[in-house]
Computed example of a mutant assay.
Amino acid sequence: MFFIRTAGKQDLEKISALLAETWHDTYDRIYGPDKVADITAAWHSVEALKTQLARPGSEFIVADDGERIGGVAFAAMADAKAKTVMLHQLYVRPGCQGQGTGAMLLAEIVEAFPDASTLRIEVEPANEKAVSFYEAKGFEKVGETSDCGVTGNKSGIPAAIYERPLP
Rank of each mutant, 00 (worst) to 15 (best):
G95Y: 06
E140C: 15
D25W: 08
D34K: 06
F2D: 10
W43I: 00
R5A: 09
D79R: 11
I121D: 03
G32N: 02
C96R: 03
K9V: 11
G95V: 07
D64K: 11
E108Q: 09
T6L: 11
G138I: 07
N153L: 11
S155W: 09
S16F: 15
T40D: 08
E122W: 12
V62L: 08
A80K: 03
I109G: 02
D34M: 06
E140F: 08
Q52V: 00
E144T: 11
I30R: 00
I121T: 14
Y31D: 05
A80R: 08
A17P: 10
P33H: 08
A116S: 12
Y31S: 06
H44T: 00
V36E: 06
L49H: 06
L87I: 01
R68H: 11
V92W: 00
P158V: 07
E140K: 15
G71P: 06
F60C: 05
A116E: 13
R164V: 00
E135A: 13
Q52C: 04
R120W: 10
K141Q: 04
V85T: 03
M77H: 09
T51K: 15
L87A: 00
D65T: 13
A159I: 00
D38M: 12
P158H: 02
I157D: 11
W23S: 12
A80G: 00
S117V: 01
L53A: 11
V46Y: 05
L119R: 03
I121A: 15
D34H: 10
Q10A: 14
D64Q: 11
